[in-house]
Amino acid sequence: MDSLGRRRFLSKAVLGTTAVTVVGASTIGSFAPEAVAGQRPKLDVEPGAPDPNFVDGRVRSLGKGELLVTSADRSMHRIHLTSATSVWKLRPTTADAAKVGDGLYARGVRLPDGTLAADAVWLNIVNLQVHITSIGRTALHLDHHGDRIVGHVVAGTTAAVYNSTPAVSDLSLLQVGKHAQVIGAWRPDTNEVDLATVYAAA
């Protein structure tokens, strides 16, 4: 089934215009939230320990459904991607968006051969605590612990969250001199990021 066909199928599944096979229960409240919250499963990783199911590094090469990643400690990691792997690069995207040199965080399950079967991959994602030093027509100029960062506004994607209210596309309440938190996609080997979400006080 192609991407559009799959979307149509899933739309019908959730909006109730077709009968589909549903795993477990599919209606709201079928899983008791309290029961879920009440469980206290065993810790997956010891406190302070390196997480075997997580990779932090830069993409060194691309293969068929695979990324080869080098971590800062020079260790190499093979990351296996499937259609069930979410890939984020400024917005949800596909594995095709990965480029050599991209920074990467990946979470999944470490297989016996050392490969990470990825559930989620975030490419070039950064989370910065900044001060807005100036605002231009297409970018925010940011101070990140004394380093200058240019945050590019991406029409249709960049959103702002003011004082915990729902995200909006209106960026006109951002103020020079105020602090902000920025989720964005770093442009490799530059001091520039494309802005996904800006958390700010209005």
């Binding site: 899933l10 599944a13 959730v14 229960a25 709201i28 068929k64 991607l81 499937t82 259609s83």
Partner: peptide
């Protein structure tokens, strides 16, 4: 609304 639908899980090309 939510639905859980079985996934084929094919490898990306």
């Amino acid at each position: 609304r939510v639905a859980l639908v079985p996934e084929s899980g094919e490898v990306l090309v």
